[in-house]
Simulated assay, not measured.
Amino acid sequence: MSEHNLDKEKLKKLEDYIDGLEEKEGCLINVLHEAQDIFGYLPEEVQLFISRKLGLTAAKVFGVATFYSFFSLEPHGKHIISVCMGTACFVKGADKILNEFKTRLKIKDNNTSEDGMFTIDTLRCVGACGLAPVVTVDGKVYGRVKVEDVEGIIKEYTEG
C-alpha cells in the first residue's frame, strides 16, 4: 500500500494541519495525534507521509508511534471495549467477562470484530477498584459487571 491508496481528503486534512504549524520541530506527537484522529489509526503510509513532511526519519516516527500506547498501528472498531484486568477486577472475574465479550463478538486472533463494530482490549487498572470488575465502552464506565451483563452492554451499541 502506498500514499496513493490513502483517502485523499484525509491526507489533505493532515497536510493542511502540518503546513499550518508555526514550528515543526518538536511537534511529532501532536501530528501523530492529529493523524490518528483523522485516520483512526496510524498506517505505515501515514507514518511515512509524516516523516517526509516533518523531515524526520521513518524510524523516528515509527519509534514514537510504537512507544506510546495511545497510538495504534491497526484500525479499531467503531466502539472500543476495555476490560480492566487489574488485581481487584481480575479477582472478581474480569477474565470471564473478557472471554464472554470475545465469544459473543466472535473475536479470535485480532482484537476487532469482523464487522468492524467492536475492538476489545484490556487495561491494567481503571482506578475504580470499588466498582470491580470494570468495563469501559468508548469511555463510558460500567461497574460491577457480571458475565450475564455482557449481552446487554453489546446491545446498547448495536441497537442504538
Rank of each mutant, 00 (worst) to 15 (best):
T103N: 14
D37V: 03
G55R: 11
E34V: 06
I153N: 04
F67H: 10
L98F: 15
S113R: 00
K13F: 07
R52Q: 01
P133G: 06
K146Y: 07
L11V: 11
F90R: 14
I153Q: 07
M1V: 05
G55N: 04
K53S: 15
G40L: 01
P43T: 00
E45T: 09
R104Y: 04
T87F: 08
F67S: 15
F67L: 05
E148T: 10
E159G: 04
R144Y: 03
V126F: 15
E156T: 06
V134Q: 04
L105E: 05
E9P: 02
N5D: 07
I38L: 14
G160P: 00
E25Y: 13
T87H: 09
V137G: 12
D115M: 09
G116H: 12
T57Q: 09
G160T: 08
A94C: 09
E15D: 15
G116T: 07
Q47S: 04
Y41H: 15
E74R: 09
S69C: 00
T136S: 08
R104I: 10
D7H: 14
E159C: 10
T136V: 02
K92S: 10
L73G: 13
F90L: 08
V61P: 07
K60P: 02
E100G: 02
H79S: 05
A59N: 13
S69I: 03
F70M: 11
G63I: 01
V64G: 01
R104W: 01
E151D: 13
K140N: 03
F67I: 00
A132F: 01
